[in-house]
Design a binder for these strands. Structure first.
Lengths: 347, 347
DNA sequence: TGACTCGTTTGGAACGATCCAATAATTCTT
DNA sequence: AAGAATTATTGGATCGTTCCAAACGAGTCA
């Protein structure tokens, strides 16, 4: 049954040494004699001993080997991949992670941050819910716990951040559509009260202006940043007197929805209409037509965020570092650019 | 800077009481006088005290308020939604969760289970990687830690399980396609060495046999259970001398890939070809055509698994409970059934 | 032989919260 | 007014590990 736990003292007794020696063995200290080490390890195996990290963490010099990860929407592939990237690095570094989904709820976010803090995390990576304030990280930073913000920036937060270059990415994507001859280009999806959406819209606008095209606000259609939102957004856009011939989408989920919506109207994405996504989720490559997208490499971003946090945890000092990762336009089929090649291949 | 932590003793001193009283306040004990409670709470706020759960967990009567969740592929929406469902219940119950992704690696799985054990989880929910054996849970069960297996069963494991009724679901889906007049129905995607795939294929087979149709093994095409796998599978299937007119897909990701692959060949899913998925991820509703799928309600399943685990944690006794959740065929457009209605509506 | 290493080993005091048994302060009985 | 009953509070041992200072045995050197 639930027998009382096996402790170092039990091991010590079984191996005929002191608990201090057992502790040294556990830490793979070079101080201990080989034979003793073997004896102790045998006893550990024999008794089925399980190291108790909570106890070890009690000593205030120790650091906990636990980090917290908070994301706002795990059902979005982008965040799932981000989390997977972090997971890979953290696992390899011997860390284990608390993961919590806020679903954009500030209350939940506050609760989970507090809870993680009580459980002794050594660091936190967070993609903050909308409306998060710099003050929400105060308890952690005051305790010297490093925090890395990803994806969405929080003004005034004196913590590290890892963001993607939304402006440049949106501009590049728009320029690409322009170069394909499109003149009525829509920006579909996303809520304009978020920093990320604002940055992407700005990049889109700047590209149009530079090309000497008057930006038409009717072509900017807000919607939930989801597949369903994309369907809704493209439907609204196609009802315009002068409908667009191409669209830059807020993210890949929206872009998939846009493709769905177009097909529902008998318009084939890639052939009759240019669609560009944003994020670069794995599915973008697999989809047909393959989605042209501004790739931020979510897994890679997750890995980098994890490394950033680990660096701070290990260095001991918490100095905020702001990093903007470059993005790359992955040209595939949905924008129409690859159609000529496809034609050649199939002929 | 990283001043030494504020402890109950600091609070006690500041409030002019003993640490025992502070402890009682922390546990919201009714024994303590209202005024004293107020004084203590004021001191707690004032000093920015953070409860140290590791310390509390040391006492062997305590349970840790931490559970572990291990999934094999978080980039698959199904598992992401499953995790979100668990997260909701766990958060509400005041638990925090370790989440780890194994990516089907048994080594990683072993490592994370051991690591979580060392960190003192009170329970574990796991969607086991392929090849997991009952013995992999022994350390946990020996320590009296409840384990709930979800999605995939492990033969001989004396732990609780929560599975979906794969056989019935696949049979119902196949019967539905038969009722729509299809006679060449394929089963696309998945690896036949997994229990889940075997059960689904068996349900598919049984439905065919019952309808008096000889099952043609050429119509069963294995592939990775992903969108890309779906594209590949349908391509192979359409090369057959007698290609299928409809397909039951291993899961929704495969089904989306199958839709992609069909379109690439100029075949419109739902109109020219019946597609049915399995899982019921959120995207299935949003997609166009909306995906007909055997819905297991992943979030709901996650919630139920979490409740199952919590019940065991709270009851104290670990008695294995096997539960099979019913599934529901959500008929939408991709199977072709709704096309008649759509036709009517648009006329 | 005594002082000195060197390589191992070891008590015991932390760490921060809990909880039992005991005490102190108050009100209620009779 | 003395004892019982009730209400609040508290000291100290405890949980399982770490780590320091000390000690130990065995050799080395002068």
């Amino acid at each position: 049954m639930t027998r009382s736990r096996v402790t170092v003292i039990d091991i010590a007794r079984a191996a005929g040494v002191s608990k201090s020696t057992v502790s040294l063995v556990l830490q793979a200290s070079p101080l201990v004699n080989e034979q003793t080490r073997a004896k102790v390890n045998a006893a550990i195996r024999e008794l089925g001993y399980v190291y108790n990290r909570s106890a070890a963490n009690l000593r205030q010099t120790a650091s906990s080997k636990i980090v917290g990860i908070v994301v706002n929407d795990l059902t979005n592939s982008f965040f799932a991949e981000l989390a997977v990237g972090m997971d890979m690095v953290m696992q390899s570094a011997g860390f284990v992670q608390f993961l919590a989904n806020t679903g954009e709820s500030l209350d939940r976010q506050r609760e989970v941050i507090a809870s993680m803090h009580e459980h002794g995390i050594s660091g936190l990576i967070i993609s903050p819910a909308r409306g998060t304030e710099a003050a929400d990280f105060r308890p952690l930073t005051a305790a010297g716990i490093p925090v890395v913000i990803v994806v969405r920036n929080i003004a005034g937060a004196k913590v590290s951040s890892l963001l993607s270059d939304n402006h440049a990415g949106a501009r590049e994507a728009t320029e690409h559509l322009l170069s394909l001859g499109h003149r009525r280009i829509a920006f579909l999806g996303g809520f304009s009260d978020t920093t990320v959406a604002r940055e992407r819209v700005q990049g889109y606008r700047d590209a149009l202006v530079q090309a000497g095209i008057a930006a038409d606000d009717a072509l900017i259609v807000n919607s939930a940043p989801s597949r369903a939102g994309g369907v809704a957004a493209v439907e609204r856009a196609m009802l315009l007197a002068e409908p667009p011939t191409a669209a830059l989408c807020f993210n890949d989920a929206v872009a998939f929805g846009v493709c769905d919506g177009l097909r529902a109207r008998g318009i084939e994405p890639g052939r009759d209409f240019g669609v560009v996504g944003f994020d670069g989720v794995i599915e973008a490559q697999a989809a047909v037509p393959a989605l042209t997208t501004v790739s931020v490499d979510p897994q890679g971003m997750g890995r980098r965020a994890a490394q950033m946090l680990l660096k701070q945890i290990n260095s001991g000092r918490v100095e905020a570092e702001a990093m903007v990762t470059p993005v790359r336009l992955a040209v595939r089929q949905s924008c129409g650019a690859a159609m000529k090649d496809m034609g050649r291949n199939t002929v």
